[in-house]
């Protein structure tokens, strides 16, 4: 299949079924480098399934995924990570018994070692380069004052920043953020996203982020994909997508619900 050279990520005709349940279908999207793409949709609309397929957590039932003109469909997640795609999680996935610095350093050390059994054994974890990289990323995400705090004692916002920082410390070219502001209070959301987005801009990272808050989407995305019933129903600039009548009817209505209380997990 052909992909345009300017696209860093191209998915073609992606589909995922669980038995008779269709979780995602007919998804064809191509994302140019350094674009920031917001992904909206109700719970169960297929957003997380979409992200999980790109990062290799789920294998698509049909279709193909291309990253920097290499096909990555169905590859295991750790291989995809090594190719340059990172992700953060809806619930921050960090190492609670390690400090912020140790979390960041192990992530940096992994990114710098060649992988494989020998690479993992022969690379020392506190090499100068990994330490420098970890410190730099901690500064970039402005969590320096928590540097030596064990991760299990961090406030929610810092946990999120650490989670995203660990995804970024290995210099990925594409980052998928699964609901970066979930669990964050309304007052803190914008500050958090400001820190995250300016950090990602500095590193010229292409971003796909799932978000329920339309104001955040409108403010931070260059482009917005709207998911409904497993597929993309609108794709365009934030204004175009958010003004789309189908989007307003099917998704923006949901937003009112999600901002008061989160419905159960999809």
């Amino acid at each position: 299949m052909s992909t345009s050279n300017s696209a860093i990520l191209a998915v073609h005709d992606l589909e995922k079924t669980f038995g008779s349940l269709v979780a995602a279908r007919d998804i064809t999207v191509s994302v140019p480098a350094e674009q920031t793409v917001g992904v909206i949709g109700a719970n169960g609309a297929g957003k997380t399934t979409f992200i999980n397929m790109i990062t290799g957590h789920l294998t698509p039932s049909k279709g193909s995924i291309w990253f920097e003109d290499k096909e990555i469909t169905g590859k295991p997640s750790r291989e995809i990570t090594r190719l340059g795609i990172s992700r953060s999680f809806q619930v921050a996935q960090i190492f609670p018994s390690l400090t912020v610095f140790e979390n960041m350093r192990i992530a940096a050390a992994i990114a710098r070692c060649s992988g494989g059994v020998l690479g993992n054994i022969s690379t020392p974890v506190h090499s100068g380069a990994a330490t420098v990289e970890a410190e730099a990323t901690i500064d970039l995400f402005q969590i320096g004052r928590y540097r030596d705090t064990p991760a299990n004692a961090l406030p929610q916002g810092v946990r999120k920043l650490l989670d995203i920082g660990m995804a970024v410390v290995g210099w990925p070219r594409l980052l998928l953020l699964d609901e970066p502001t979930s669990g964050i209070s309304v007052e803190e959301k914008f500050d958090l996203m400001n820190v995250v987005m300016s950090a990602l801009k500095t590193r010229k990272i292409t971003v796909l982020f799932v978000e329920h808050d339309m104001e955040i989407v409108a403010r931070f995305a260059d482009r917005v994909l709207a998911f409904y019933d497993g597929t993309v129903i609108a794709d365009g600039t934030p204004t175009e997508t958010l003004d789309n009548p189908r989007v307003q009817e099917l998704i923006s209505g949901v937003r009112l619900k999600t901002s008061t209380g989160r419905p159960g997990h999809a």
Partner: peptide
């Protein structure tokens, strides 16, 4: 060994295998 990446990953594996995998390391290996 304890000071290598493989050795230092002990606590992370105990804490959170998913994150280790998404950092690009095979927990099994």
């Amino acid at each position: 060994y304890f000071r290598s990446v493989a050795g230092a990953l002990a606590a992370p594996i105990r804490d959170n295998e998913i994150r280790v995998e998404f950092l690009g390391v095979s927990v099994t290996s």
